[in-house]
């Protein structure tokens, strides 16, 4: 782990610490809680997508597993929320390994479709298994989390807790990338054959990282349940998987910091757009939230066409363009 990452985590921690004082509005604080949850999932997804080079359009399924495990075990069986979250992690882990063993043998398009198929199946089951999941009407009355006897019942407390988890996850992910495992993963991304001939057990490593990213997604789902206190299958459809991929890709596939940047930007985008729509309304231009999808797509497409390494990399480059002159050689590569 190099100095830049420490500084990055330190700066982010500072921003997080002062944020509730700067915002002071529960609604926006709530938006930032969802941002944290997306960051958590995206950090895991970035390890899989950017470092191991394996695409997954199935992470909405793991978010859903975490969310439903927390919701159902606490409301129907009266479990402690932490135990339910743990159970969610275990279920996601087992599912990821079972799905990952056959799936991760596939590459590229096949892998994308297989994970997409898996996520669609989970969504269909959530809607159809009315007896267990409550079907489209969902589960309500989910209890809040408690930490050391302190209920996480205000937006500020939940905010601090979720962002603390994001910081821990970041620290963990950055360390992992610079470890032997992380370098092995990047070797897999480069060339599976070369990695395997140098002694990287590619099958096991891919499944491990898939399972790890599933755990991140599951925790984020559990936190969602315990924050919103009501869930239905709506937010966990395939579109959510696509949105997660968009976040990672917009920020920059090959960097954890890029994934976090993307997650923050796209989570705040709907707010930005609704703010914009108020401005546009003054000029008699009607903006509906229905157009959000179109804008997500347009952003994703333009990033992929013009900045395939993502916004974070674009920003970094334009900075280093001013500070150093060796960017030209970097670009030449």
């Amino acid at each position: 782990m190099n100095m830049k990452d420490y500084i990055g985590i330190g700066v982010l921690a500072l921003i997080v610490a002062v944020m509730p004082f700067a915002v002071g509005n529960d609604y926006y604080l709530g938006v930032l809680v969802f941002t944290a949850l997306n960051c958590l999932t995206c950090i895991g997804l970035c390890l899989l997508l950017g470092y191991a080079g394996q695409i997954s359009l199935g992470h909405s399924a793991f978010v859903a597993i975490g969310a439903y495990a927390s919701a159902l075990l606490t409301t129907k069986l009266g479990w402690n929320p932490w135990a339910a979250m743990g159970a969610g992690i275990v279920i996601s882990l087992v599912t990821a390994v079972l799905v990952g063993i056959p799936t991760l043998k596939l590459k590229g398009h096949y892998l994308a479709m297989a994970t997409l198929g898996f996520a669609s199946i989970v969504h269909v089951v959530l809607v159809a298994a009315v007896d267990i999941t409550g079907g489209p009407s969902g589960v309500s009355g989910i209890p809040r989390l408690e930490l050391f006897g302190l209920a996480l019942d205000t937006d500020t407390r939940i905010f601090y807790f979720c962002w603390a988890l994001v910081l821990v996850a970041l620290y963990f992910a950055v360390n992992l990338i610079h470890s032997r495992v992380g370098r092995g993963l990047q070797a897999i991304h480069g060339s599976e054959d070369a990695a395997s001939s140098l002694g990287v057990n590619i099958t096991v490593d891919k499944i491990r990282i898939f399972a790890l990213s599933a755990v991140f997604a599951s925790v984020s789902g559990s936190l969602y349940s315990h924050y919103v206190l009501y869930i239905d299958p709506g937010p966990f459809d395939v579109m959510h998987s696509v949105l997660l991929i968009t976040m990672v890709a917009v920020g920059g596939i090959h960097s954890i910091w890029g994934a976090v940047t993307g997650a923050v930007l796209l989570s705040l985008l709907p707010e930005g757009l609704s703010f914009l729509s108020e401005g546009l309304a003054q000029f008699n231009i009607q903006y509906k939230t229905d157009y959000d999808t179109l804008i997500y797509g347009a952003i994703l497409l333009s990033i992929m066409l013009f900045l395939p390494e993502g916004l974070f990399d674009g920003i970094r480059r334009s900075f280093s363009f001013f500070s150093k002159t060796n960017t030209e050689t970097e670009r030449g590569q």
Partner: peptide
């Protein structure tokens, strides 16, 4: 990701 982006745009 490009074809996914196109699908989101068309859907939107």
């Amino acid at each position: 990701i490009i074809t996914i982006a196109v699908s989101i745009i068309v859907k939107g």
